[in-house]
Design a binder for these strands. Structure first.
Lengths: 235, 235
DNA sequence: CGTTCAATTATCGTATGCAATAGTGATTAT
DNA sequence: ATAATCACTATTGCATACGATAATTGAACG
């Protein structure tokens, strides 16, 4: 009775392990991801690691360059803006779909979740951030739309990566009160208000957590003012 | 001077070939996809075929079952609804993003495209359908949002698959006049009207092209009435 | 001392091989 | 004759192997 797992399950495990490691910043943005050392570490061959890389690359969590292998994605600010924009659009759709269609049990579950968030609000551990994210995932799940859920999950995890790069350290991403208001509007069946709240909520997440609206990653942009002040002329 | 392509390019080629074959219904929904015969046919090994399957599975064009391999996806009507709903949400976002931001060149390109659609409207060849789809892709491209483009492409190709299953044969998916109106609204910068037009447009695509609200794919469901009429009792 | 070029090493891209599982047809027992 | 069983084949899941490309070191040279 050898304890062999279901086939395909190991590839999934590798995928999930890497995904978590990236989102929790154990693997930092830009970090190189050699296939064989990772495979060795996880006890699988390069084949499965590559498979996981493929999925993660599609989701925008890793970048693959030909003959140069994979590395944890380091989104530009432009990509970040794209992701946030799409996420807002998706979650407005979530709100619109859910407005007036929440069962009592679902509403109760959401409120229980918000209470958890409230409790964890004090400590700025990863707990608070995780709960904030899960609230949005829960909402997407409740739509019953599998594709919508997948897209929200994907853009959500990319947002985590982005905030890991550009966000201020201990910002608890979501305001609990805004979550409460949203539940209220969904319950009331006010789709317009719900989508508006969601939109505003996600916008404020960006402005609250994002440091400056413009951080130039390019060395030239960083050095340009210094060069000018010294009378040097960048080529 | 060996004609070796860029690395990773062959995997991409396999992916694109299969994708096209599925969308054009050369590979019909539900059809089994054995790794080695496909690899043999395309001149690559199973490894690359599997890689392509992975991507296609994520995009919902093929289904992978453990130890049973891959087959062309056969979406249920419920999944179809999900896809259309998400696509509507995404394309409303496209319209909203583009409203008032179209350059003159972009508007001209769209109108040229619509003229092509008009010209191809008579013949119900695949040309007409392809052009209809490309209009939406073009719009998504013009947003400059790479993620939005990817999602629109993905949901769009899934819609093709769905219409291949449930759609009536020669329905030219999109009404050209609706495309014209949309361009008009985008040009005028009327975001509300543009999103509304897009929403209505995509809704009417569904109602226009979708055959019956229920086609059962399961053999049991197909055979059940026959069994009954013959006095047989399905277990 | 810095630079360039060559050799080495590390890592990737892809093909192939092997064990395991599901499907298929023959065989046998009832 | 039908149903159950078993052997065989086909196909998958995963690992490994091999050639190719890029990174790196070191040496020779300016």
């Amino acid at each position: 009775m050898s304890e062999s797992r279901a086939p395909g399950s190991r590839a999934q495990s590798v995928y999930k392990a890497l995904r978590r490691a990236i989102i929790e910043q154990a693997l930092k943005p830009g970090m190189k991801l050699p296939e064989d050392s990772i495979g060795e570490q996880l006890g699988v061959s390069r084949t499965l690691v590559r498979e996981a890389f493929g999925r993660l690359a599609i989701e925008g969590l890793v970048e693959q360059k030909p003959n140069k292998g994979a590395s944890v994605a380091y989104p530009t600010l432009e990509e970040a803006r794209d992701v946030f924009d799409v996420r807002r659009g998706l979650e407005r759709l979530v709100a619109e779909t859910l407005a007036g269609r929440l069962t009592a049990a679902q509403a109760a579950e959401l409120e229980a979740h918000v209470r958890l968030e409230e409790k964890a609000h004090g400590q700025d551990g990863p707990e608070s951030i995780r709960l904030s994210g899960e609230f949005h995932i829960k909402l997407a799940e409740m739509t019953g739309n599998a594709l919508l859920l997948r897209y929200v999950q994907e853009s959500s995890s990319r947002c985590s990566l982005i905030l890991a790069i550009y966000g201020r350290p201990h910002s608890s991403e979501c305001a609990v009160s805004e979550h409460r208001q949203l539940i209220e509007a969904l319950r009331a069946g006010d789709a317009a208000r719900a989508t508006e709240l969601m939109d505003h909520h996600l916008r404020s997440v960006v402005t609250r957590a994002l440091l400056t609206p413009r951080i130039e990653r390019d060395i030239r942009d960083v050095l340009a003012p210094y060069a000018l002040s010294e009378g040097l002329t960048p080529s």
